[in-house]
Computed example of a mutant assay.
Amino acid sequence: MSQSKPKIAVIIGATRPGRVGGSVAEWVHRIASTRDDAAFDLVDLRDVSLPFLDEALPPSLQQYENEHTKQWAATVDGYDGYVFVTPEYNHSTSAVLKNAIDFLYTEWNNKAAGFVGYGSAGGSRAIEHLRHIMAEVQVATVRNQVMLSLFNDFEDFTTLAPQPLQTDAVHAMLDQLIAWSSALAPLRTKGE
């Protein structure tokens, strides 16, 4: 971690059958991959397969008992920053994304996050909730965000067809995310 080029995870925050989050994250990843100022990976919570939080001790102690938690900790720890691709369910983010965040603490610390939301209100309320959650795990969130409307950026509410301005929004968010991920690197290496 903390190489000259930040390593950024694009996390798909939905696992439900028929989700559009996969196509949204792949679109973000394609745009990000055209850049040479960071390395980007897709991380799908479907592949992580975490149960509801099942660790006996608080995550801040890093005394994980379960192999799935240890694997998730290693994954999260390997990145300098994150792009959270989130649906909006009932004015918030998905339970699976909140659960994945709650499993860990230290692995998130002193990193940066950007957000891509989608829903009837562009995922704005999900993003706002995620900002509060990220603050608690000591992740700095960037101001620029991408909000995809089911009415304007999808065909039949399911097929991603983003307006051209959304590509610019992704780049603006990534500009901030990469800068902040790099700026926070000294805090992450302080204890090493």
Score class of each variant (00 low, 15 high):
72 W>R: 14
79 Y>A: 11
97 L>N: 13
143 R>Q: 09
56 A>W: 10
36 D>Q: 12
26 E>P: 14
99 N>Y: 00
99 N>C: 05
98 K>R: 12
54 D>C: 08
89 Y>M: 09
133 I>H: 15
32 A>M: 04
6 P>D: 04
126 A>H: 04
75 T>G: 06
98 K>C: 08
35 R>L: 11
128 E>F: 01
9 A>H: 05
148 L>K: 06
18 G>T: 03
96 V>I: 15
82 Y>V: 10
15 T>A: 08
26 E>C: 09
44 D>H: 06
35 R>C: 13
52 F>G: 08
92 S>G: 12
5 K>D: 09
7 K>A: 01
97 L>P: 13
14 A>F: 00
46 R>H: 00
54 D>K: 07
96 V>L: 04
123 G>N: 10
34 T>Y: 07
68 H>D: 03
134 M>V: 02
36 D>H: 12
130 L>M: 14
39 A>N: 12
146 V>L: 03
48 V>S: 04
43 V>A: 07
95 A>L: 06
117 G>L: 02
95 A>H: 12
23 S>I: 05
84 F>W: 05
62 Q>V: 15
133 I>F: 14
120 S>R: 13
146 V>N: 02
119 G>Q: 08
18 G>D: 01
37 D>Y: 04
47 D>W: 09
144 N>S: 14
76 V>Q: 05
114 G>Y: 00
143 R>P: 09
41 D>R: 05
135 A>V: 09
75 T>H: 01
6 P>Y: 02
40 F>L: 01
83 V>H: 03
101 I>F: 03
135 A>G: 14
117 G>W: 00
81 G>K: 04
115 F>S: 09
71 Q>K: 13
51 P>I: 02
70 K>A: 04
137 V>W: 04
45 L>Y: 03
121 A>L: 09
138 Q>K: 14
77 D>K: 10
48 V>D: 01
126 A>N: 12
76 V>E: 06
46 R>D: 02
33 S>R: 08
9 A>L: 05
103 F>R: 08
124 S>A: 13
131 R>T: 02
147 M>W: 05
17 P>F: 00
80 D>M: 06
48 V>F: 01
128 E>Y: 06
35 R>T: 15
116 V>F: 00
130 L>N: 11
36 D>A: 11
26 E>R: 10
61 L>T: 15
103 F>D: 12
30 R>G: 13
113 A>P: 10
83 V>S: 14
71 Q>W: 03
61 L>V: 15
76 V>T: 04
6 P>T: 09
59 P>E: 02
57 L>F: 02
30 R>W: 05
5 K>V: 15
142 V>N: 07
84 F>C: 10
63 Q>Y: 05
7 K>S: 02
29 H>A: 15
130 L>T: 10
38 A>G: 11
27 W>A: 07
141 T>P: 13
62 Q>S: 15
85 V>I: 05
82 Y>N: 08
20 V>H: 12
133 I>W: 12
50 L>Q: 10
111 K>A: 01
67 E>D: 14
90 N>L: 07
27 W>F: 07
15 T>P: 14
65 E>T: 14
22 G>K: 08
15 T>R: 13
65 E>H: 14
29 H>S: 13
81 G>Q: 02
146 V>R: 08
46 R>M: 06
84 F>E: 07
64 Y>P: 13
62 Q>L: 11
